[in-house]
């Protein structure tokens, strides 16, 4: 099936509203162009898996969605407005963000870390304590007094994820949240994401574990600053006659490079 890769966008977004809409987004750093006219649509109350190799622009895209980077060109709408514009809900308490770098203060304990981020969100001490208990239990974290610097890489990654979940935001932007996390816990995390998505939270997860993303409602396959495909995992696989998402992605990449099927 020859066809413009970008037209593989099946499963018309049916009922829900659009939480995030991006059209023709261009953005780079200095002279280096990273996002080259990217289009993207994310429905409210769904999990969107953003897949692609390192350097394809996933993190840049997330930073634009957060209002940290200004688009050089194109339209971006997150929760109804351009991020960072006056009156916009982004950045703000509506968003939970887990960056690719751990972004933790090494000398703080888990409790102090949660207190810090909770306070930034205006959460009361009691609420923070409740969430702390739940998160430690859910994510298998060590005791609250444990310093970040005394944790393993996987534990640190889970603390970073916990911070994004702490204030139960409407929109979650998670950049590689499961790196270094064992498969059992990874499955638990994805189950929880599915639960909160069903309750209305919008979740964007970037990952380079392609098969993990088969649990998402929709996936966007990114390469060299554009999306090669954006649809539900099933549709993407069918479009490439692939039995796994990884296979589908490889096929799409080959096609994009101009090679044969």
């Amino acid at each position: 099936m020859e066809g413009d890769a970008a037209s593989i966008a099946g499963d018309e977004v049916s009922v829900g509203e659009v939480a995030i809409s991006v059209t023709g987004l261009v953005r780079g750093y200095g002279k280096v162009r990273v996002l080259e006219g990217l289009d993207m649509r994310v429905e409210s109350g769904s999990i969107y898996g953003l897949l692609g190799p390192s350097g394809c622009g996933k993190t840049t895209l997330l930073k634009v969605l957060l209002g940290r980077l200004v688009p050089a060109a194109g339209e971006v709408s997150v929760l109804g407005s351009l991020p960072g514009s006056p009156g916009s809900r982004v950045p703000g308490g509506a968003v939970g963000y887990s960056p690719q770098e751990l972004a933790l203060y090494e000398d703080l304990s888990i409790r102090e870390t949660f207190l810090f981020h909770g306070r930034l969100h205006g959460m009361g001490a009691e609420v923070i304590r409740e969430r702390e208990s739940w998160l430690i239990d859910f994510l298998d974290l060590p005791e609250p007094s444990r310093q970040v610097t005394r944790m393993s890489g996987g534990q640190k990654r889970r603390v970073s994820l916990a911070i994004a979940l702490l204030h139960e935001p409407e929109l979650l932007l998670l950049d590689e949240p499961t790196v270094g996390v064992d498969p059992e816990l990874r499955a638990r995390v994805w189950d929880h994401l599915a639960t909160i998505a069903a309750q209305g939270t919008t979740v964007i997860v970037t990952t380079h574990y392609i098969d993990e993303a088969s649990k998402a409602d929709r996936v966007g396959m990114m390469r060299f600053g554009v999306l090669l495909a954006e649809a539900s995992p099933t549709v993407v696989m069918e479009s490439q006659s692939a039995t796994s998402l990884e296979e589908a992605f490889l096929a799409l990449c080959r096609r994009d490079s101009g090679g044969g099927v």
């Binding site: 930073k63 957060l66 209002g67 940290r68 950045p91 703000g92 308490g93 968003v95 963000y97 960056p99 690719q100 770098e101 751990l102 972004a103 933790l104 203060y105 981020h117 930034l120 969100h121 911070i163």
Partner: peptide
């Protein structure tokens, strides 16, 4: 540069 400020700004601070 280590992402902590990014996270702080994401909260609207």
């Amino acid at each position: 540069y280590d992402g902590t400020l990014d996270r702080i700004f994401a909260t609207g601070t």
